[in-house]
Each structure stands twice: as C-alpha cells, then as structure tokens.
Amino acid sequence: MLTIKDLKASINGKEILKGINLQVNPGEVHAIMGPNGSGKSTLASVLTGRDYAEVTHGKVSFLGEDLLDMVPEDRARKGIFLSFQYPVEIPGVSMVNFLKTAINEHRKFKGLPALSASEFLKLMREKKEIVEISSNLTNRAVNEGFSGGEKKKNEIFQMALLEPKLSILDETDSGLDIDALRICANGVNKLKTAENATIVITHYQRLLDYIVPDFVHVLMNGQIVKSGTKELAYELEEKGYDWIKKEVFGTEDAQ
C-alpha cells in the first residue's frame, strides 16, 4: 500500500530525514518509535504533504501512485489520514459544517453524490459511538476550547467518519489520561479491517498495549535504525533509547 524508498527531507536546509525505507501492506499496524526530535512528526508531515519540510531525495508510492506529486487534499481524499499531534482550533467553524464539507469532498473525489444534511447527521450519530464523543463537543467549533484529551478523541472521531486506507497517528497517546487513551485505542481497533493500515507514532510503549503493532520501527536521528515485532517495544521500554544508540552508533550521544 505504502512504499517509502530512501526518503530524505530537510527543514530550512537542515536534513531531518536521512534516508527512510518502509513498506506498509493492507491489514498491517506499524509502530514508529523514537526519542523527541528524531523526525517522527516530520515523516508524518512529508507523507501528508505539509510543505515546511522539503523532500530532497527518494520516492513514496501509495496505492501505486507517486504520493509526493499530489497536493495534500488529494492525498487525504485518496485515503491518507493524519491524527495530528497538535490538533488545530478553527474558531467559529462548526464541527458539523467542517466535517460535512470534508466528507462531501471525499465523496466528490470518489464520484459519489454529496450527503444531505440529514444523511450526514445520521452518519455522525453512528460514528460518535465509536469514540464515545459527546454531542456537546460535536456541537462546538472545531477543537475550540477542547481539552487535550477531547482533541485527540476528536481526531479518532474524524478518522471514523472519513474511513481512511492509511491512518497515521502522531502521538495520539500524549496528553491522555488512561480512560481517554483506552477509548481512543479502542476506537482505532474497531476501525481496523483487512484492507486498511495504520502507522502509530509514539515514544512510549504504553499505547501499544492497546493498539498491538505487527511491526515496530525505531526512528533515530532521521533514520530507521532497527525494526522488529512488538517485543522490540518492550525492550525499549525497559532499556530506554540509549541502549539502541549504543548498539547502532557505538556511542550514547548520536548526532
């Protein structure tokens, strides 16, 4: 589904991603772990088309097409979804208006007719249950005044509505208490099918107790330095990242 080949990207001339290789197939869950600043969010940005990071080398194909050629909204319509590390507030824009616009853009792209207001509200009611999001949130403006946990729930709620093929969850666990974490993770699990795939970005193992990955990759200093199964996550939790630094770079202070 997604193939990343030797991907390099810079921010303001500084190389942040230094040759990423990754293959994601339908039905798989990949975890990308790594210390703060290692480039995890930058990778998510490059995949979704945010332009502050400039791709300098490499290829990314998604469902057989060149992903890096597409504008961000087309990537989204083709089925790439990002659950933002820091969801953005849009004052005055109602959730209903925002989501209805989003859904209908996706439908238009697929050649489907727009949903009427009542069809949309019905769909929204159904999907609300997946993340136990309350009406008093969906009746407000997009993320405006939401708590950290509410914002993250709202991301998963949008994922439920848009039914992406590839979801990238960037630090969905950060800032969540244990109940909210469980609700979000359960939501993600309910949405899992044999046709879609998920990339879970996190630097704690905790989330992976709930969303069980098929593969775990360690991103460090702009490169995937180690890949394995979920056992790797436990090892990291136990020994910390320094252990890998030593193993990979032969020193504790990579850079």
């Binding site: 909204e73 989204a76 969801p87 953005v88 616009t101």
Partner: peptide, 9 residues
C-alpha cells in the same frame, strides 16, 4: 493544512 488534510482544498 488541517483542512487540507481532511480533504478540503
């Protein structure tokens, strides 16, 4: 960008 990512131009 948040809107773009949800499919909105």
């Amino acid at each position: 960008f948040y809107c773009n990512q949800r499919g909105i131009s």
